[in-house]
Design a protein around this nucleic acid. Structure first.
Lengths: 193, 193
DNA sequence: GGTGGATCAGACCGGTCTGTCTGGTACCGA
DNA sequence: TCGGTACCAGACAGACCGGTCTGATCCACC
């Protein structure tokens, strides 16, 4: 903690919460600084004191979202399923939970990446997220004893992304179940009888 | 043709070509009108005379891209493959061609949709594109005699979108081949022995 | 009670954006 | 040759944005 004051962390948290809501609900570039500080109930100088720039605020928003997604996935997988094989398929069921939530607007990292030119700050955060998705499937595929874990993981990533796109653009939350069905077949085929 | 002059169409075409390049290479919202008219070598008043607003220019850009994608897919499928079953899998090979092109920056409709708030003009054009993708797979699945064409088409759409995301965000043009492999297995399973 | 740091409210600056308007020019049919 | 039309170049208006700065206020700590 850089300062002894708890209020500063609170202001920072309110700022981050407001920015996360607005940046996700609407786009990053359509949400101005004034909107963020208005919702957070915070002065503009406080925002720039805490984050330094809008770009850093966006970075913090994506980093926090990445952490939340990762934690939620780990928590749900552990609570719901026992074996790596079950969890490999269960990822799509957990994904389906977020699709069904009221404010679902597609993958935040895909959205943020589409708004920025290549080489920007958000691309690096998105790369971290993408690496996590790959390792999520790869680790489970290895634990499940797949004959070719890399190959299986790559296939499941395709389904994972495809489900996210369909749920968002086609407004079809059931895409997760369709992906789950295919994933189960792929896992069965890759882990042998 | 609204006017007898051929130059007007030429100015419009140059405008649309310049807008398409810029809107796709960079984002829609980062490209200003001035950039477009500069590349097209056209006066600003001409742009507003031809399109009326930037929003209509974006709409024309997406509509033209949709038409080009549709025509290219139809042409390549017809030239390369004979049976509906071959074409069902061949879609992913044609998709892989675009991934390998130098300026590939992901699906233009996903990108444009991520930049705009829901209910905007581009959403309608994106919906048309999405409907075409679905019908592309659905028609071929029916022609191929799939036991459940709807189900097969939905699965292949997942792979199609997933491949597009991986090719773009993971900079992995080979995603189309990975999708093709899974697609072939799904088609085999759905069309019987 | 006093002090210093964090915060607040909001004016302000420089820049960029979309869209309009003006004036000058090239061309084309009558 | 003349008149209309499309075009060009660019100034301009109005709005918005990110970011800085000022001065007042609040609050924890000494």
């Amino acid at each position: 903690m850089p300062t002894k004051s708890g209020d500063r962390a609170s202001a920072r948290e309110r700022l981050l919460a407001a920015a996360s809501e607005l940046f996700y609900e609407e786009c990053v570039h359509t949400v101005g600084i004034d909107r963020v500080i208005e919702r957070a109930g915070v002065a503009k100088a406080t925002l720039y004191n805490a984050f330094g720039s809008k770009d850093e605020l966006v970075r913090a928003y994506l980093t926090a979202r990445h952490a939340a997604t990762r934690e939620r996935m780990a928590r749900e997988l552990e609570a719901r399923y026992q074996t790596p094989r079950q969890r490999l398929v269960g990822v799509f069921e957990v994904q389906g939970l977020s699709f069904a939530e009221p404010g679902f607007r597609g993958c935040a990292f895909i959205g943020a990446c589409a708004e920025t030119r290549p080489g920007s700050t958000v691309e690096a955060v998105a790369d971290e997220y993408r690496a996590w998705v790959r390792s999520l499937f790869l680790d489970l595929a290895q634990e499940a004893g797949a004959t070719d874990p890399e190959r299986l993981a790559r296939q499941l990533v395709l389904l994972y992304d495809g489900a996210g796109i369909s749920a968002w653009m086609d407004r079809d939350p059931g895409a997760a179940l369709a992906a789950r069905t295919v994933a189960a077949a792929l896992v069965d085929a890759a882990t042998g009888p």
